[in-house]
Design a protein around this nucleic acid. Structure first.
Length: 113
DNA sequence: AACTTGACGGTCA
DNA sequence: ATGACCGCCAAGT
């Protein structure tokens, strides 16, 4: 029997590949996963990473505008922002200024397995 | 089994 | 540019 990876694990695999100092979007990951995933599903999957013992860089996933929409799911008020700033991202409010420049698209970087 | 709720994104007024 | 709607689909209630 071929065990297919669960949706969660597929998302984790991609997020784990986001390089230090780079970011991607929920939609980009969803697109990479194909019809099996909508952007909402990606967010939902990341929500369960806090139960995982793995260290998944979920802070490197933002919405398509480079806005830190998931900041509330991190401990503290600005944990997500601080993590990204420490990686060289320029952030004003909850908006990544150099988003386009730092954007990492799995559809381009990960051609196929 | 039905209804609501999202770490979203694209479209349209 | 801003805001409302709708599709997405698993989980929780």
């Amino acid at each position: 029997m071929i065990m297919e990876k669960g949706f969660f694990q597929r998302v984790y695999d991609i997020v784990n590949r986001i390089p230090y100092g780079r970011v991607t979007s929920y939609g980009a990951i969803a697109q990479f996963l194909g019809s099996k995933g909508s952007a909402r599903m990606v967010g939902w999957a990341l929500n369960s990473t806090k139960n995982s013992t793995e260290n998944i860089p979920a802070h490197r996933v933002v919405n398509r505008n480079g806005l830190l929409t998931g900041k509330r799911h991190f401990s503290g008020n600005d944990m997500m922002k601080e993590l990204l700033k420490s990686e060289g991202l320029l952030i004003e409010g909850d908006q990544i200024i150099n988003f386009k420049e730092k954007f990492w698209d799995p559809n381009i970087e990960i051609d196929q397995e």
